[in-house]
Design a protein around this nucleic acid. Structure first.
Lengths: 253, 253
DNA sequence: CGTGGGATTGAGACGGGTCAAGACTAGTGG
DNA sequence: CCACTAGTCTTGACCCGTCTCAATCCCACG
């Protein structure tokens, strides 16, 4: 496939932003960790931006709220994901983030991050790439919200979740939805009733099995067909983590 | 208003990302300019990422296409706007961009940009802030696509256009839509027929006047009401331009 | 064993999509 | 300069997907 070739070639001959580098977790730069209970707010719109957060454990949801109180969930975050990026622009967080379960996050004070990343271009690159990826993800989701039917969006959502769980070393076919039906609806631009109906219908069709929050995906080909993707496509957008498992900043030398 | 205060305070006491700095357009670093005719493609998905583009004149549309050929327009760009940002992550452009009218863009080879911005943190900041803003814009648009009715989306779209034209020194109430109905629909997640119907209805209601591509907004309060905003809200997200009018890179010292 | 939040399911309404016909517009070539 | 043409826009009729409203069920928790 032409695009795949191009992509591969580009990753090797990457002109500027290196795909992977010699990463050294500098030993004496551990991040602090903050704990949040389910329902706690990590940050909210208008709050002064001081730090980025990297999820260590648990799960979060980010969302924006319109003047009229309408809620759009902009994303769900699990271990390794970053939140707070939109605060960079105006030094004020632009979305709300709450914990869906008891969670722990690494706190990266932005001042420190900048200072550290000045020593090598790697950190800067990593952050820029993360931001660019966020834009990409947003555009893909806009595509879903703007052009696809409810069942297609749901399929994409489930496959995306599945993939992320798999990437975390968990089962790709059986997992627990950390969020409410309402949150899923808020993410997919649907009402909670529609979400419920879709899950029921998909169960009736043998595509999956639901029992409250527990879900098991049975028919991946059907989901791919709905989502309009193929198994190889949508390869997980894995990136060198900004902090390692122990919470040390990843800065190349 | 509490939020406005906070915002203002934060811009002055910005801990890390400076709001404004002493900008010096370094004299011997003009960007090259490329000309595009209407319908020309600036870049497309999968193409090797080498440069960012800053619109100098004309207008562009960016969009992504799904497997099934469904098109989601992700944005329209006019003078001062940047495209190509999503290529940073994987060194491959992630969206298509075409010229809606004969246009000129400054070309910023990314390698050079990086080299130059290494001399001062300002350039890096500017780029990061631009990326973060793009994320913010995407989230706002997701809110529209996911939660709002067609007429509300249209109102938001028109007010946004109006504001951008005003910011370019043009009339905020009378302007020419550079894009087709289909493009507007593709942006708002609607069909071209619905777009046409909405414009007709708004004209009937005395909110605006349309004649083909020429539009004049008559009743701003009505538009604000529809959009769920207020005049002061949605203050234009103006940022120090990355290149000045002559195409010199803006790099603080 | 209650209690309340979450989830399911149904009936009906409505917004927007789809299909199709016609009008307008700008660009093209005679 | 005009006529032709293809692309664009408008408008109508109908249909379908999703929302709304409401009743009921389920389960975790005290």
């Amino acid at each position: 496939m032409a695009i795949a070739e191009l992509l591969d070639r580009n990753q090797r001959t990457a002109p500027a932003v290196t795909g992977r580098a010699d990463i050294v977790s500098l030993p004496h730069r551990p991040c602090s960790v903050r704990r949040f209970d389910r329902g706690d707010s990590l940050c909210s719109v208008g709050e002064s931006f001081r730090a980025l957060f990297v999820v260590r454990r648990g799960s979060l949801k980010s969302f924006v709220v319109s003047r009229n109180g309408l809620v759009q969930v902009t994303g769900f975050q699990v271990a390794g994901d970053i939140v707070g990026l939109d605060g960079i622009d105006r030094c004020v967080y632009q979305s709300d983030v709450v914990a869906l379960a008891d969670s722990e996050v690494f706190v990266l004070p932005f001042l420190q991050w900048e200072q550290w990343s000045r020593e090598s271009a790697y950190g800067q690159h990593l952050l820029m790439r993360t931001l660019a990826r966020e834009t990409y993800r947003s555009h893909q989701h806009m595509l879903a919200l703007g052009t696809m039917r409810a069942d297609q969006r749901m399929a994409i959502f489930l496959l995306d979740l599945s993939q992320r769980y798999e990437h975390l070393g968990l089962s790709r076919s059986e997992f627990v939805l950390g969020m409410l039906r309402q949150d899923i609806g808020g993410y997919l631009g649907l009402t909670l009733e529609t979400v419920s109906r879709l899950l029921s219908r998909m169960q009736r069709d043998g595509i999956l099995q639901v029992q409250g929050k527990a879900i098991s995906l049975l028919d991946f080909p059907a989901l791919w067909r709905l989502a309009g993707t193929t198994p190889d496509h949508h390869q997980h957008l894995a990136l060198d983590p900004i902090v390692d498992r122990e919470g040390n900043l990843a800065v190349a030398h």
